[in-house]
Design a protein around this nucleic acid. Sequence first.
DNA 1: TATGAATGAGCGTTCATTCAT
DNA 2: CATGAATGAACGCTCATTCAT
Lengths: 208, 208, 208, 208
Amino acid sequence: MTRAEPQGGGRVGGKEARILQAAVSVFAENGYHGSSMAQVAAEAGVATGTIYLYFGRKQDLLITLFQRNLGEYIERCRPALNAEAVGVPRLRRMVSMHLEFFTEDRALASVFQIHAREPDPVLRAGIQPTVAAYFDLISEVVQSGVDNGAFAHDLDPRLARDMFFGALDEVVTRWVRAQHPFPLMSVRAPLAAMLARGFGAQLSGDPS
Amino acid sequence: MTRAEPQGGGRVGGKEARILQAAVSVFAENGYHGSSMAQVAAEAGVATGTIYLYFGRKQDLLITLFQRNLGEYIERCRPALNAEAVGVPRLRRMVSMHLEFFTEDRALASVFQIHAREPDPVLRAGIQPTVAAYFDLISEVVQSGVDNGAFAHDLDPRLARDMFFGALDEVVTRWVRAQHPFPLMSVRAPLAAMLARGFGAQLSGDPS
Amino acid sequence: MTRAEPQGGGRVGGKEARILQAAVSVFAENGYHGSSMAQVAAEAGVATGTIYLYFGRKQDLLITLFQRNLGEYIERCRPALNAEAVGVPRLRRMVSMHLEFFTEDRALASVFQIHAREPDPVLRAGIQPTVAAYFDLISEVVQSGVDNGAFAHDLDPRLARDMFFGALDEVVTRWVRAQHPFPLMSVRAPLAAMLARGFGAQLSGDPS
Amino acid sequence: MTRAEPQGGGRVGGKEARILQAAVSVFAENGYHGSSMAQVAAEAGVATGTIYLYFGRKQDLLITLFQRNLGEYIERCRPALNAEAVGVPRLRRMVSMHLEFFTEDRALASVFQIHAREPDPVLRAGIQPTVAAYFDLISEVVQSGVDNGAFAHDLDPRLARDMFFGALDEVVTRWVRAQHPFPLMSVRAPLAAMLARGFGAQLSGDPS
DNA sequence: TATGAATGAGCGTTCATTCAT
DNA sequence: CATGAATGAACGCTCATTCAT
């Protein structure tokens, strides 16, 4: 989706990265539709035209944000999840990672929470595949738990996946909007417990 | 939030209602930001300026949609919920009503699912109170279940509320986007079951 | 090529016509590529956006100028030419009309002379058909003269047509550019004579 | 009109020439206004900035093309014309050379035919003198024919010159635009004959 | 000489909103 | 109440030109 890709690692310290970071700030503050390329450029400390050396269209800023950051996160998830026992432990881990991911960068979290459902066709086409990959990952965690007997054998995996994502998504959205944000990680254990129970897991008294 | 409010109920068949209905169609098709007042006017069969006799700003179209439709739905919910036994039955009923509400009008559902998180301050200020009222309603259902002992005594009501809404929200969003939408009501029982279990309810074998 | 077509005949006295006239002025002065929509709007005494109520794109201004003015001229030509005897009289008449047409409006002439060959695909596609129709008209005049024996029997009609148009075109271009323009009509008789002779006509001593 | 003038004839194979050749290609394809310096640089296989080592402004590319190529052609014309007998032979020769010149390089022909009338003041000022020199050359050929009695004694030399140029110009323009270009030289004899007759020459049956 | 990233003025176009009728 | 032509600020994007390397 990016057009030209100048060195990037040069003296100024990664102009492309600075632009993306500026986009996160500006979009988080005003929303994608409430932000102008001029604002992003100003925040990044570059000229308007410079953005177009790295991103072909305004839309590519948002798309790249999803592809890069969410994509990397998904990559990080796979091995970490596989390191956990199937069932509740793996589910707990996924809850943890999700919350940690968004805790790391609240502005980025804001952008993701607000813009994941953008209806603009170009935006959708650019964002959806990455989001879909994350859904697939959740599906795998659920399915493995069902196969393994950790979760109810008659669990609907797609529905469980949607409940899992929806619950986390709503919690993160609330956190992102809060004036005085609570520590997002504090919901980790109770939320994981609710989900696990909902999936039919028999919970012993061992929180992680 | 609307500026002028002509009679509205006149002979001509409710011009205001026609405009709102047109807004639903157009916003569902192109998204709020991808839609113009001219498109809405054309769809409604009125002149552009006419919209401004009923709604002061473009934003008021979306705001009114939330206030009116979601507001009415909330009103309908209260007595229906109170007619159900506290705990799982009431929870089941809430799931049913939520799904029924969106099933009724898929275009409206699309608008709600996509635009509930709009970051524009005016939009937020107009929409949030209504959404917040719905969250309060959910909270009440959860809290009464906890108080009553139907749900786990240590359930975090805010978290449970978010899981409840998030799960339903995600399911409806998926339904709204599906090319060949499945019957949304089909998820009623399993979703209610997952939520109930997640809340710590002891489920006997009685689906409704 | 025009988008909307508001009344046009209203109180202000034909806004579309005023815009086109402004376009002629501005394009004649700065050339199409050297002119901005803002300049045209200013010259027409309207807002920039108003132009787009009448013309969908900047290109449509130039295209419409050709289609309307040159098109009307061609319509005027047909009956006038048919009223003349085939051969030299008809040829003379065509020379006269061509020169008269451009004499009428020097700014318009300037626009036509300078922009008839625009390579932009949209411009070409819009302009070419009208210009082609004029070439066909010339072809008819030449061909009828050949058939009738007034011109050389072995005259190449396409080549003759090109010489005819090219000669007139060059003369008009020179006139359009001249600081102190000579009376364009003064070349009528000698140019017609040269062309007629070139086409193999036997000229008696009767200028018209 | 060029600003800096590096050696040009160096080892690398004439970078300046390569740039000019690239300009011809690109301008022929997209027109001057539809072409960017970046496109020309890419076609020439140099960096954008390199063009500015040889040409001060975009306009100088087009100007230099006219000055150099048309200028050289005019120089070649003079002796060749003087080698021909005054009157029809010299006129024939001029037609031949004109057609040969454009036949040699169709892309260059395209650029010349389309852009000779550019209204931009800088472009005009740079191009006009060279074109004017060519007109003078034509004038000389016509005038010598008149003085010599080969052409009509009352021939208007300026008008004849314009007809001569206009006719050739139109034919070349048509050839340049044709999808399947006819052999341009094929019009040599008939076009020269038409012009000669138009100028009042008595043609014997000797085509050259 | 040569590079090509960077600049930023400028342009075409859109569209929410107004207002004379 | 209704119209829809008119407005003009605002925006995304381009590209000739510069300059640090």
